[in-house]
Amino acid sequence: MIDSKKLDPHFKFEVAKEMGKVNVTRCFACGTCTAGCPVRVIDSKYNPRKIIRMVLLGMREEVLSSDFIWLCSTCYTCYDRCPQDVMLTSLMTTLRNIAVREGHVHPAFKEQARLVGSFGRLYEVEDFDNKKREKMGLPPVKKIHDEVVKLLEHDAKKEAES
């Protein structure tokens, strides 16, 4: 049941502003996104058309605190097929980014951000890895990219404060 008192009619504009595009308001609920979604076909808890409706209705808290916004596999099928150019994959990224700022980050993505913020790459490279590479005739890779660590240090600071 939707409680109309809890709806935030401004949410869709907040999302549009964050995206830099108003495309989400163009959705006419045809369901092309959901029909072609490779995640939806396996688990109905991820349903892009429903997520768009929830955004347009202003179900801000339900959307941002949900598990389902983390389930988009970013395949861009809906993005390419949407007849109203809603740019769904970007919309899902936008929802995730807003959710993160409100403390709803999924642990898998939190860990990815921590690794990239610490090393400038997704996997920590050990001496062992470079030795292995040398044996294969491959050049070594840099273990830590200080420049990237510096560029992302504002995130680490925010994380420490929270």
Binding site: W70, T93, T94, R96, N97, V100, V105, H106, F109, K110, Q112, A113, L115, V116, G117, G120, R121, L122, V141, K142, H145, E147, V148, L151, L152, D155
Partner: peptide, 17 residues
């Protein structure tokens, strides 16, 4: 040598990063 991660893994948390 200076090429790092492309940036994809942090898109979900901060697109601008």
């Amino acid at each position: 040598d200076d090429f790092s991660c492309c940036g994809f893994p942090v898109k979900a948390t901060d697109r601008h990063d």
